[in-house]
């Protein structure tokens, strides 16, 4: 128990969480601190490029083992299935309409790259290693949930205007979404160039990584708090969902990680992936495919409730559980 406490404390006192807290408090206090949109976007792209490349170079250095395929299958299955769990919960815990609940469910089946990056950074802070290919698994987990979410929503919609044109647009949004392309692309480049490539770009990709993550989390704190302050759509039941669903996801992710035989760090990150909720790829896809769903609901839940929960409480908890279960 004291172990859990010390893990939680080292997370809370890490620069990443403290910068997030700074942004959060500043926005709550209505400070005029803000990060220009273009810079926030660039930081987010940098994080995807760096984590993708690191993951690819990691796989190139350590090689591919059989658990990779199993982990990929487990990740895709989780992403497909979790929206159904989320939808059932939402229908019991909130008064959301069917379409809104389906849109939220898709977010919780998908993943958040920044939550993963924070989890990976926390693991390296604690000296725990993880499988590099989890980055690729993350990219695979991004989209299946969108399909499940749309299927859930289709039962509540009377659509006659679903032209093939709109479908193509959605497919492009889902599979060629900027974050997915950059993540996979950087992973492949990392894989192809390996350790040597890593040495070449390390000054850009490795050295500033932690600082840029802090900068980005400052912005996340600002966004989360301003969303929370302006939210009119969030009921106590929805807040309960935003806190309970990551725990259920983490339990499923932990079970999947143990089942396919990942390391302690790998199990932790599977839990982090399953616990996290998307706020970049899925919202854009939902806005196109389900314009009826209220974006304020899914964005506030994902950005202002679940992300802060995972960052502050979730990640150290998932690590402690993984360490207990793997004996690592």
């Amino acid at each position: 128990m004291s172990d859990l406490f010390s893990i939680a404390l080292s997370n809370l006192l890490s620069p990443m969480v403290l910068f997030f807290a700074l942004g959060f408090v500043a926005a709550l206090a209505r400070s005029d601190l803000s990060i220009p949109e273009a810079i926030a976007k660039a930081l987010s792209l940098y994080l995807m490029l760096a984590i993708g490349f690191k993951g690819g170079a990691g796989v190139a250095a350590h090689g591919i083992d059989a658990t990779l395929v199993l982990t990929a299958i487990a990740g895709i299955a989780l992403s497909f299935l979790m929206p159904f769990v989320a939808f059932t919960l939402l229908k019991r815990m909130s008064k959301l309409s069917g379409v809104d609940a389906a849109a939220v469910s898709a977010h919780y089946g998908s993943i958040s790259i920044v939550t993963f990056v924070s989890g990976a950074e926390f693991l390296s802070l604690m000296g725990v290693t993880y499988e590099g290919y989890l980055v690729a698994v993350m990219a695979l987990m991004e989209t299946p949930a969108i399909i499940s979410g749309l299927w859930l929503a289709s039962r509540y919609l009377d659509r006659s205007d679903n032209t093939s044109n709109g479908q193509n647009e959605l497919l492009r949004e889902v599979f060629l979404n900027g974050s997915v392309v950059l993540l996979i692309g950087a992973f492949v480049i990392g894989l192809a160039t390996g350790t040597k490539g890593m040495e070449t770009v390390a000054p850009f990709i490795d050295a500033p990584f932690k600082g840029i993550l802090c900068f980005f989390l400052l912005d996340m704190g600002l966004i989360a708090a301003s969303r929370l302050r302006e939210a009119r759509v969030i009921s106590p039941g929805l807040i309960g969902f935003g806190l309970l669903m990551p725990l259920i996801g983490a339990a499923l992710g932990t079970a999947a990680g143990l089942l396919v035989g990942l390391s302690t760090g790998g199990v932790t990150l599977m839990a982090v992936l399953a616990a996290s909720a998307s706020y970049i790829a899925v919202p854009a896809a939902m806005r196109l495919a389900l314009p009826e769903a209220n974006p304020a609901v899914y964005l506030t839940l994902s950005l202002a409730i679940t992300f802060p929960f995972n960052l502050t409480v979730g990640i150290p908890l998932y690590l402690a559980v993984a360490q207990y279960l793997t004996g690592g």
């Binding site: 926030a40 987010s44 912005d219 966004i223 919202p283 209220n294 974006p295 950005l303």
Partner: peptide, 14 residues
């Protein structure tokens, strides 16, 4: 109708 929105840094959705 759905409340305040501003230049939506990350998602661009709103």
């Amino acid at each position: 109708h759905d409340g305040s929105w501003r230049e939506d840094q990350l998602t661009g959705t709103q």
